[in-house]
């Protein structure tokens, strides 16, 4: 009798536990999933487009989305990851601050079973992010390099303004450009300096370089914000019409500047396409897909004075 009672109680406890589990699962499935959009910096219109498009696409797909600004600071980025994981976000659409420095943050999310989809910038690891959707910066800058050589007629002095030295895109762009330009010995690089992808820093750097090298013929910049800063410095010193400036991004002000013959060319990246793809990948992940390509390159197209009328800023979706 006593044993039968015990068996009955055991059955009741088991049934209640199973019901509880089902209830919890249902609540977890019913809860609106949350997507975090963590961006290296929002102090650049290009990244604002990337962030807002990713968040809006996630919302269109039925998820709650919040944007976090890392302000180009890996420590702040770590804080964002810790907060996002602790707050129960279900996926991260991520634009890393540093190819090496951001790996630990992505790994932290992976260990917490939160998928991370990198946008535009990569991390130097292939086993932490679920997928990395990246501009083919190298190929884009090969095209700009060829145009640069043609426009400068294979000779002259030039300056290169680099982006953040910890970002792979900085070096992919520089290597793509140099894979062409270095074949022309009469094209001499007189200065190569970093301006951290920042417009104001690029202006200051260019002002200093012009003091030492007032006779340059061209400037290749690792992004459009820096190209605008460089153009401002050249305009202030009365050299804007003599020096050819080349950017990379396809940002609004540079597309306008190409139309106005102020800037020669840029590499059109497609931030909206990358952001929407990342959000769609998160959606597919929630539906159960797991076999994502680790790296998904996105083509870059050169926009110059001959074809600028065919393009809109930040490209199509």
């Amino acid at each position: 009798m006593y044993l039968n009672l015990l068996r009955f109680l055991y059955l009741v406890v088991a049934a209640v536990s199973l019901l509880g589990c089902n209830d919890r699962d249902r609540k977890s499935q019913d809860r609106q999933k949350k997507v975090a959009v963590i961006i290296s910096t929002l102090n650049n219109p290009w990244f604002v487009v990337l962030a807002e498009t990713a968040a809006n696409r996630a919302r269109e797909l039925g998820y709650a989305a919040t944007i976090f600004d890392s302000q180009n600071n890996t420590a702040l980025e770590t804080d964002h990851f810790e907060n996002v994981i602790a707050s129960g976000f279900d996926a991260i659409l991520f634009n890393p601050t540093d190819a090496d420095g951001s790996i630990a943050n992505v790994r932290m999310a992976k260990n917490a079973d939160v998928p991370v989809f990198c946008m535009d910038r990569e991390v130097n690891a292939t086993d932490v992010a679920t997928s990395q959707i990246l501009s083919d910066s190298y190929a884009g800058c090969v095209a700009i390099g060829k145009y640069f050589v043609e426009k400068l007629n294979k000779r002259g002095k030039y300056v290169e303004i680099l982006g953040l030295v910890g970002d792979n895109n900085t070096w992919s762009r520089s290597k793509g450009f140099h894979s062409v330009v270095d074949h022309y010995p009469e094209l001499k690089m007189v200065a190569q300096q970093s301006a951290d992808f920042d417009r104001n820093k690029a202006m200051e750097v260019m002002e200093s370089i012009l003091q030492v090298h007032p006779d340059i013929n061209g400037v290749f910049c690792g992004n459009d914000a820096m190209a605008m800063g460089v153009y401002q410095a050249l305009a202030s010193s009365g050299k804007a019409e003599k020096v050819m400036v080349f950017g990379f991004d396809g940002a609004d002000d540079v597309i306008n500047s190409i139309q106005q013959n102020k800037i020669l060319a840029t590499g059109m990246q497609f931030p909206k396409l990358m952001a929407k793809t990342a959000a769609s990948y998160a959606h597919e992940y929630f539906k159960g897909k797991r076999d994502f390509a680790q790296k998904v390159p996105v083509s870059v197209e050169m926009v110059n004075q001959e074809n600028v009328d065919e393009y809109v800023a930040y490209g199509n979706d």
């Binding site: 083919d136 790296k295 390159p297 083509s299 870059v300």
Partner: peptide, 8 residues
């Protein structure tokens, strides 16, 4: 042939 996504 194309590596990823885009128009090229």
């Amino acid at each position: 042939q194309a590596l990823g996504i885009g128009n090229i």
